[in-house]
Amino acid sequence: MKIGVLMKQVPDTETKIRIKDDASGIVVDGIKWVMNPYDEYAVEEALRIKEKKAGSTVTIISMGPKRSVETIRTGLAMGADSGILIDDPALEGADCYATAKALAKVMEPENFDLILCGKQAIDDDSAQVPQMVAEFLGMPQAMVIDKLVVSDDGKKATCYRRIEGGAKEVLEVDLPAIVAAEKGLNEPRYASLPGIMKAKSKPFKEINLGALGLKAEEVGAKGAKLKVKKYFLPAEKAPGKIIPGEPEDAARALVKMLREEAKVV
């Protein structure tokens, strides 16, 4: 099976986010970059399928600035076979639509049997790119999946997802399809030290818009349908209150607060 994994490099979850003075974005200086955690599940799942189906390959595809190479290499160190980075200054300012367009374009000639990705990136939390890529490629899509079974003949995939009330929804899709991973799909492996050393010599290519056959006005800020006007940090949360005393008195005090201060009951 030929498997493609869409991957995005995001700030480490513990990063302290600072906003640029002109509110046009976040300050990227000094940020530690990691693989989007949901994409880690996608990489892991791809590797598990590869281990089961002899002759399979896993290619990691990412769009982003040069530094994204490091994160692609983490995927290669985990065991993926090759990597592709779409890197072009004209891609700056892309929204989900423009991103999906470029990603779809790069995947088209690859003829993947299965495309895996995270259900969303934890930086902008848009959760739109996988669906849009599916549309551009004309593939079925299964989103927010926490269990995936590929049929022995590699023609179909059974995908499970949690729905409200603790129930599971089961989807069956014809392959090729795009499947977006939810937490719980698997436990991603570590990049082993020998794996890290091998990653260096695995095939990796960087492509720009020209090579992709896209024009600058179709992608990046110019091709975007959505423009971010301003970035700001959420208001700081007020500290919680602890109500002391016996349970009965405390409950009474709590109800009073909910009614008079919070005005929610």
Binding site: E70, R73, A77, Y190, A191, S192, L193, I196, M197
Partner: peptide, 12 residues
């Protein structure tokens, strides 16, 4: 970059 990756595997 490789050393940082080794380091990350150890911390993880």
């Amino acid at each position: 970059e490789e050393q940082k990756m080794f380091s990350k595997t150890a911390s993880d």
